[in-house]
Design a protein around this nucleic acid. Structure first.
Lengths: 219, 219
DNA sequence: ACCCAATCTAGACGTTGTCAAGATGCGCGC
DNA sequence: GCGCGCATCTTGACAACGTCTAGATTGGGT
């Protein structure tokens, strides 16, 4: 049943379909991918260490060597989500050729909501404090990276005089709360039920534009 | 070990400390109370049917006769939360003697956030679609009641000309998203980390006032 | 006064997270 | 070019969980 040599160290190169009997070679990444797939296919409630291990064709105790426990696994998954969120917001600003603070803020807001809807497997975990180990180093770094962009954008808007004298911190909090709440309510199903809407993207665009218009452009 | 007769039907009257050996008399209410206490003391992750039953001094299978399964138990608890949220928002509007739509909206917004922070055991469950049975009749009715007030307030604001021609639905969605996002981010711990704030109530007041000012009072 | 149905108990089964002990083999130091 | 350390993975065990079934208990309607 032994298979062969040619064992590769887990470098930055391709990672799929490369398994030995012992020593998977890239288990950490495979496990995180598997978590996402399970959530997408069956929901968060179906994520279990044993199911993840089963899908990765390893023993039920193998994940423990890469993540301290279930909380550690989910925390790593959440950190991955924060990294992708930061990337998505950065890309959105760049590809929208947004230049003025209101444009940048609007692009980031729409990207935030779109990320939440397109990556519910990550978003649904990222803010669940009780499931996560908030002291995990990678997690802390990832969250920091994700929100640095937002903070910087708002700081620039303030110094450029776009805030009409409003407290930048309150403005950041409002903008962030708005997009986060919109995403959360949409994902919970309540927003559709209460407003009768069905097109998430159009709805998010309308709300985001409304906010930016009222807060930054008016006057 | 038998105890006595005087068995009472579960009327609307007092309900605590009235247990027989068989036939608790008010198990349903006791179980829901217990769920809240467990979440408050130990967190959502520690809610289990068996632990709830244990605290209610009842066998591990007893809850199944009042709630179909764990999801049913949590759904009933969430419905209770929606009822209390509706009550809290109503009380806030009344006691603030709010009259104009902006005043009413601001009072409701602050009440929403305060409810979330003061009743995290409920709020933390209410929007977790994957844990709940969204078709449950009591649940559907409770959510409907909770949001009818918000919808009506905004409709009145629109007809009174406070929205400057903005789409009422977009305005409702924005206001709701704002307070919901603020509460969710605060409870997740991220908002404090990113803004350096510590007084939730003052912070919520500032954000709510900011929004109402920009959206309804300006112009 | 009786009996039905609601309520609760007791026991069992499969699954989960975690721990301990042992197997395997890559790659570093020689 | 080779042995060995240590990270990686397996196997087995345990307590706790959700749910099911069968049976005990008892109040209220008839």
């Amino acid at each position: 049943m032994r298979r062969g040599r040619a064992h590769r160290t887990a470098g930055a190169a391709g990672r799929s379909a490369r398994r030995r009997d012992y020593h998977h070679g890239d288990l950490r990444v495979t496990l995180l991918d598997t978590v996402g797939r399970i959530i997408r296919e069956r929901g968060i409630a179906f994520v279990s260490i044993r199911e993840v291990a089963r899908r990765a064709s390893v023993s039920h105790a193998a994940p423990a060597h890469h993540f301290r426990n279930k909380s550690g696994l989910l925390t790593a998954f959440a950190a991955q989500g924060y990294d992708r969120l930061a990337e998505a917001m950065g890309d959105a600003v760049a590809s929208a050729h947004a230049t003025t603070p209101p444009d940048v803020l609007e692009a980031m807001g729409r990207a935030y909501v779109r990320f939440a809807l397109d990556n519910r497997e990550h978003f649904g975990i990222m803010f669940r404090a009780e499931l996560l180990d908030s002291h995990d180093e990678l997690y802390v770094r990832a969250t920091g990276r994700a929100f640095a962009a937002v903070r910087d954008t708002m700081a620039r808007a303030a110094s450029d005089g776009y805030l009409n004298g409003a407290d930048p911190m309150v403005t950041v909090a409002s903008a962030w709360s708005l997009v986060h709440g919109l995403a959360a309510l949409w994902l919970s199903g309540q927003m559709q039920d209460r407003t009768g809407s069905s097109d998430a993207d159009a709805f998010a665009a309308a709300v985001t534009a409304f906010f930016v218009e009222k807060v930054m452009r008016q006057r």
